[in-house]
């Protein structure tokens, strides 16, 4: 074992005799960073107060009152309006329903605006709110404040607020993320160990819906590809896209896919490993209302 001295973390070092590793040698004393104790030591490893540090960084969590001590504000169109009691500032907030049950603890850069949005999207769950404005609202301070309220709630009730449970999307509207286009190769100058055809085969069989298009899914470069993407998006089909014009990461793909599918043009839409068709076919299926049924099964 090597002797390790890291000056910046000297307070985390502990002494260990490593005799067991050198039974025949004279016992040596070495300094080791103890991996398990570092987290335990952290709370007591607070450095002596440096004058160069601004004091407020230490007072961050104290800027927010405990959840229990905070007074609640009834949510109404007036309360989050410009003259309301809710501040248009950054901080932590807790939403209670009309029966006084805590529903969600959230963070916001503009509490009044966020509450207003909640009140509009889930009015039945917004009875009152508690608000803790965080001064100097950097990311860490906000997270700290949120954590302290969450911990306080969990300590008392033994559970996470329903809106904060993982998978609950009532309060956090997730923007539908656009998937990135898939790349078949790591780059055109990298020698492939399997043929491109095999990669195509694997790709269309492992993904339910794959669209080979010209251009990216966010910016299709051909009208037919655009039309197909439009149909898939409109029908809410979960699909993967591959840009056949990407000469860096999909070099040679156009010819390979044409040969693979025995279909002369792009776009090409695959479902469960089989070509469904191109723009004409998808368009006519769309007109007959068959797309959702077929692709979402």
């Amino acid at each position: 074992m090597a002797t390790l001295i890291n000056l910046s973390s000297t307070q985390l070092l502990s002494f260990h005799s490593s005799t067991s590793f050198h039974p025949r040698n004279t016992p040596t004393l070495s300094l080791n960073l103890h991996p398990n104790s570092s987290s335990n030591l952290r709370p007591i490893s607070i450095k002596p107060y440096h004058h160069s540090r601004k004091p407020h960084t230490w007072l961050v969590t104290m800027a927010v009152k405990n959840l229990g001590e905070t007074e609640s504000v009834t949510v109404s169109p007036e309360s989050d309006g410009p003259a309301g009691e809710l501040p248009p500032e950054a901080g932590v907030y807790a939403v209670y329903d009309k029966d006084g049950e805590l529903q969600f603890i959230g963070l916001s850069r503009n509490i009044a605006a966020t509450i207003s949005a909640h009140r509009k999207s889930v009015p039945e769950l917004c009875g009152s709110v508690k608000v803790g404005v965080v001064d100097e609202p950097d990311r860490e301070a906000l997270t700290q404040a949120w954590k302290s309220w969450m911990e306080e709630y969990i300590k008392i009730t033994g559970k996470v607020p329903p809106g904060n449970e993982s998978g609950n999307a009532t309060w956090i509207k997730q923007q539908p993320k656009k998937k990135p286009d898939l790349r078949l190769t790591p780059g055109r100058h990298v020698q492939l160990t399997v043929s491109l055809e095999e990669l195509v085969d694997k790709l269309v069989k492992e993904n339910k819906v794959v669209a080979f298009i010209k251009g990216s899914r966010t910016a299709p470069l051909c009208g037919f590809s655009q039309k197909v993407i439009g149909i898939l998006e409109k029908e809410g089909v979960d699909y993967e896209s591959v840009d056949v014009l990407d000469e860096d990461y999909n070099y040679g793909l156009r010819e390979t896919v044409k040969k693979y599918s025995n279909w002369p043009t792009f776009p090409q839409i695959f479902l469960n490993g089989e070509l469904v068709g191109g723009c004409d076919i998808l368009t006519s299926m769309h007109e007959k209302g068959e797309v959702a049924g077929l692709f979402k099964k």
């Binding site: 025995n262 279909w263 070509l275 068709g277 076919i281």
Partner: peptide
């Protein structure tokens, strides 16, 4: 199927 029909045309 539609795909096969298009293939025939092609």
């Amino acid at each position: 199927r539609l795909l096969e029909r298009h293939r025939m045309v092609n």
